[in-house]
Amino acid sequence: MRVSPSERTLNYVILTAFAVFAIWPILSIVVAGLQPDAEAPGGVGNLTQAWEIGRFGSYLRTSVLVSAFVVTVSTVLSVLAGFAFGTMRFRGADALFYLMLIGIMMPAEAIVVPLFFDLRAIGLTDTFWAIALPQVAQSVAFGTFWLRAAFRSSPRSLVEAARLDGASTGRILWQVLVPLARPAIVTLVVLTFMWTWNEFLIPLVMIPTNEALRTAPLGLGFFSGQYTQGYALLAAGATIVALPVVIVYLFLQRHFIAGMLEGAVKD
């Protein structure tokens, strides 16, 4: 649309001001993380110092393992379930699907308390499984919903042609439909990675004592409570925690934005 030069200038001023407002708290933490203070040498040395004093190496290791497990398992399970819901007809399919839809909105706050006491009763708290499996369950609910829509919109003629050629159901899924649904699957993978990496409540509750199993956000939470000498190392630790998701975001931002906005819309 045609607008006056002054309105155009105003637009740039607004764009810049809002962008600065959005990024300033994040930048300020990166900058603070590089400042020297009593405990911190300054520069990149802060990151290594935080890595050792704050034990972020161990936290990051747990986060990588948990994220890899949750992303892999929930994606595979969602592909299988989304395929069935999206392309097959069987008795009770709708009921089962709506039951899983509940999981998308179900807040972790509601299930984390009974989960903790039930898992404690069978000795599973303070284990890898206590962090990973509840998150697989939550991710699978969204993943099934997301991929059902993707498989539903894939051309039926292609599936029918493959079936006439004698391809098995499994072959149709992995060699015809999955390659077609690749963009949707990539979106699902990056979103699941982000949700799992950033999750705080589930590890906080499920790992009451085992320090070696603290995830990166949980480790940062404890570090910020215990380490009060200066801000530089805390900020450096926060930078370490945020960095992996931010890097993935910078490369695949279309998937993040599309997934988070469309994921909320019913198909």
């Binding site: 994040i26 300020s28 933490i29 939470g221 926060a238 925690v241």
Partner: peptide
């Protein structure tokens, strides 16, 4: 890209930043 960035940063990190502010 910039204004959407807060959405991908862990809330714990955001809290650390704003506590300072």
């Amino acid at each position: 890209t910039v204004v959407f960035l807060p959405q991908v940063v862990a809330m714990v990190v955001i809290a650390v930043a704003w506590r300072r502010i």
